[in-house]
């Protein structure tokens, strides 16, 4: 394979991989933002519900304190899941890069 061929292949790969990185990062950022907004919205609704339930005597002050701490634990889990999904997004990107490299190079060697 001539040097010129490698340059062409590298340029082709550079373009494809750059596009993949940009679209992967954008898709992940959108999903993470959506999850964070849903989380805040849920928390707000829950706090309103529990405060009303406390006022009407449906739950005790201890119940309310427990539920708030549960919400905090759940938020920790949601953050952990996002961290995991972020790492998976990087793994998927690596996998896609491998696919592009193999299909581009193997096809031309």
């Amino acid at each position: 394979m001539a040097t010129n061929d490698y340059t062409a292949i590298l340029n082709e790969l550079k373009g494809e991989i750059t596009n993949m990185v940009v679209s992967s990062a954008s898709a992940y950022a959108d999903a993470a933002k959506h999850d964070a907004q849903a989380l805040l919205s849920d928390m707000d609704a829950n706090l309103q519900t529990w405060t009303q339930q406390l006022a009407t005597g449906e739950i005790s002050a201890q119940d309310l304190a427990f539920l708030v701490k549960t919400q905090k634990d759940l938020m920790k889990m949601q953050a952990l899941k996002q961290a995991g999904l972020s790492a998976i997004a990087v793994d998927k990107l690596k996998n896609d890069v491998i696919n592009v490299i193999t299909s581009t190079i193997i096809g031309k060697i």
Partner: peptide, 8 residues
Amino acid sequence: HATFISEE
């Protein structure tokens, strides 16, 4: 309590 259980 039932309400607490339901929320939890």
